[in-house]
């Protein structure tokens, strides 16, 4: 026979009011920012390339991931490598989201938001910095980028650095192609790379390596 008081307490627990989680989340994000505790803010954004996950520290945008990457893995990486204070806080990402929207719509050619490159260091960071110098509609090769990063024979390493570019689109690794004339790799997949190159008006090679074209170095 169950105790009536304990039964009453359990029933009473079930009837406790439910919270407005979304509202509380927004207030929490604002309060965290006000108190200097919002080490990493993240938000999602729709785009012609599918949903994007964006994250920013107080220094700047630190991550852009396509939905090819697992969201939980991206957030866990940020918790591990930047700070565990990772909160959904869209406000900090508003300028970046706005500029991305303009970029995808063809109304913007260069980004004007501070970037935080802390997820790449040493050679990888130099690769990203060299890549960031390639202008809208321009192209370069893995070989050229490796050279600009101080390691002219480190072509494969440059390829790897770009494959793990934490800031796709902002750091335009889509503008880096193999000297062979093929499309080359892209963390977001070949369709996204092709889409971005066509957006910028340069046209895009097919992924095929057997096009018989001259090898230009």
């Amino acid at each position: 026979m169950s105790d009536p008081l304990e039964t009453a307490l359990r029933d009473a627990a079930r009837s406790l009011p439910v919270a407005d989680a979304a509202g509380a989340g927004r207030r929490r994000a604002r309060r965290a920012a006000d108190e200097g505790l919002l080490d990493v803010a993240y938000a999602t954004a729709d785009s012609p390339l599918g949903p994007l996950l964006l994250a920013a520290t107080e220094r700047g945008v630190v991550r852009l991931a396509f939905d090819t990457a697992e969201r939980e893995a991206v957030l866990e990486q940020l918790a591990r490598r930047v700070s565990p204070r990772v909160l959904e806080a869209p406000t900090r990402l508003d300028p970046a989201r706005r500029q991305l929207e303009e970029f995808f719509a063809g109304r913007r050619r260069a980004f004007d938001v501070p970037l935080d490159l802390r997820l790449a260091d040493g050679f990888r960071r130099r690769v990203l910095e060299a890549t960031a110098a390639v202008p809208y509609g321009g192209r370069t090769t893995y070989t050229a980028v490796a050279g600009a990063a101080g390691s002219p024979r480190g072509v494969r390493a440059a390829g790897t650095a770009l494959a793990v570019n934490p800031l796709a689109v902002f750091v335009p690794c889509h503008r880096v192609l193999p000297a062979s004339g093929a499309l080359g790799g892209y963390a977001g997949g070949p369709e996204r790379k092709r889409w971005l190159l066509e957006l910028e008006g340069g046209g895009a090679p097919t992924a095929s390596r057997n096009d018989g074209g001259a090898t230009v170095r």
Partner: peptide
């Protein structure tokens, strides 16, 4: 490692609020 704080909130926030209510 520690989970991202947002996940920590997602996992425990409802129960904490019920306790506080």
């Amino acid at each position: 490692a520690l989970p991202p704080f947002q996940r920590f909130v997602d996992r425990h926030g409802v129960a904490v609020r019920r306790f506080l209510a």
